[in-house]
Amino acid sequence: MPVVLDPDAAAVYKTFLDADRPPYEALTAAEARADYSQARFATNPEPPELARVEALAIPAPHGKIPARLYVPMKLRQRDGLSPALVFFHGGGWVIGDLDTHDVAARKLAVEGELIVISVDYRLAPEHKFPAAVDDAIAATHWIAANASALGIDASCLCVGGDSAGGNLAAVVAIAARNGNGPAIAGQVLIYPAVDFAMTHASHSEPETSLLLTHSVIRWFRDHYLNGTADTHDWRASPARAPTLVGLPPAYVLTAGGDPLRDEGDDYAQRLKVAGVPVTYRHFPGQFHGFFTMGKLLPQADVAAKEIGAWLRISASDDRS
């Protein structure tokens, strides 16, 4: 499928090429994390002001899971409780943290008029699969169990994330449907990674190998998974779940210049076939990762506003 980047996206991509930075697969995990963290200052927009931002430490079998609670100025409430989004950051399960996705979490809180809790799950290769999954599920359990104390309406609890975070959100939704978790009102999957088989056409098209290249995806996979057998585990590849029936409503976003494009599209279509209400949004002229680059890419703000509007319906007591 031909990919024609929007002018602003093409300009950003050229800037990255001109910078001639080493690819992640040439770095150690620690070096890649530092590089990714530093890059946010050039791409993230100014953080919107919120009513409150609070650090959390979520108890888990291995210790505490760091998290961050965001409360916007304008907050939907009923009987003193608000809807919430549990957010998992992207970064290939290897890079990224609460700070790299701080602005994204803030914008979703503002646009959705709800509480956002961003979860800093354990990263690979120090903590391989299924450590990130275990943390995502444990954190969602804890948030639901402590909803009232957090000011959250547990009946209006959504999950979401970008890329690897979208993978974790999809897995948490399936686990909850299977009985391992609280009821989930909706799932926001922003260019999610859902199938480690990587056999969809967009995984081999040169036009999609832009900021997220085919080789760096393999680098992420090799750091995260223990071996090829994990590819078939639905907790790594949610598209491999035996059935998608009974999952919560989904907002699925894909980008044209993205190796994950076709698997995200396929997952959205399979959700629809399974009877799940799906809002599917494709940004043909953007590349993987654009959602966090609002300082440079206006379409990031468009996406945030659309997701916020969707959350105001899905994470609501009066949703149909």
Results as ranks from 00 to 15, higher is better:
11 A>H: 02
164 A>N: 04
184 I>N: 05
76 R>S: 13
295 K>C: 00
208 T>N: 12
117 I>Y: 06
306 E>I: 01
269 Q>F: 03
173 A>V: 04
252 V>H: 02
121 Y>L: 07
318 D>N: 11
316 S>M: 03
34 A>D: 13
267 Y>L: 07
188 V>L: 15
307 I>G: 08
156 C>A: 15
77 Q>K: 15
38 Q>K: 15
199 T>V: 10
34 A>H: 05
288 H>E: 04
269 Q>A: 15
263 E>T: 09
236 A>M: 07
149 A>K: 14
60 A>M: 05
186 G>T: 06
302 V>T: 13
178 N>S: 13
25 E>T: 04
276 V>D: 07
317 D>M: 10
157 L>N: 09
303 A>D: 02
307 I>C: 10
203 H>N: 11
127 H>N: 15
299 Q>T: 06
60 A>K: 04
227 G>R: 05
275 G>W: 07
149 A>R: 14
246 G>T: 06
151 G>S: 08
241 A>W: 00
177 R>K: 13
273 V>R: 14
240 R>T: 01
216 V>Q: 05
219 W>R: 08
271 L>V: 06
178 N>L: 13
38 Q>W: 06
190 I>W: 00
233 D>A: 12
39 A>G: 05
38 Q>I: 00
183 A>K: 11
41 F>E: 15
284 P>Y: 05
291 F>H: 09
271 L>N: 03
197 A>T: 10
171 V>S: 08
287 F>P: 01
318 D>I: 14
13 Y>E: 08
82 S>Q: 07
104 A>L: 15
154 A>Y: 01
160 G>H: 09
37 S>N: 14
11 A>R: 12
150 L>W: 07
314 S>L: 15
117 I>C: 10
59 P>Q: 05
24 Y>I: 04
